[in-house]
């Protein structure tokens, strides 16, 4: 099971590094929203892998919180950008 843990954490870590690269480089805000979502999913997978490999259930509530947080974060930022769009429709000169 130790080998499984090493392989899983290596894959998750490489994926998280690549996602962080996109989060830093991302040309637009929506790229960063998408990569933040993927990063939270990666964190949730890492916590679940830890719980499964070591048979430790103390981190499972954190898993639920992370899953909720990913949804709320991406939806609120998307609504925020959409709100900027509606505001730009009303007053075009204040658009930034």
């Amino acid at each position: 099971m130790t080998v499984v843990a090493i392989v899983c954490f290596a894959l998750l870590g490489a994926g998280a590094v690549l996602i962080l690269a996109r989060l830093a480089l991302g040309p637009s805000l929506l790229d960063r929203v998408v990569s933040t979502d993927a990063l939270l999913v990666t964190i949730a997978c890492g916590i679940a892998v830890y719980c499964a490999v070591y048979r430790d259930i103390s981190l499972e509530p954190v898993l639920l919180v992370v899953a909720l947080l990913a949804f709320v974060g991406s939806v609120s930022v998307a609504r925020y950008i959409g709100g900027m769009l509606v505001k730009a429709e009303e007053t075009p000169e204040e658009r930034s």
Binding site: V7, A16, A38, V41
Partner: peptide, 23 residues
């Protein structure tokens, strides 16, 4: 345990593919 290990490694691999695709 073997089945669980295969599932865990496959899920982790999908996270890696997400990173590759995002980049």
């Amino acid at each position: 345990d073997v089945v669980a290990s295969v599932c865990l490694v496959a899920g982790s691999f999908l996270c890696l593919t997400a990173g590759l695709g995002l980049v």
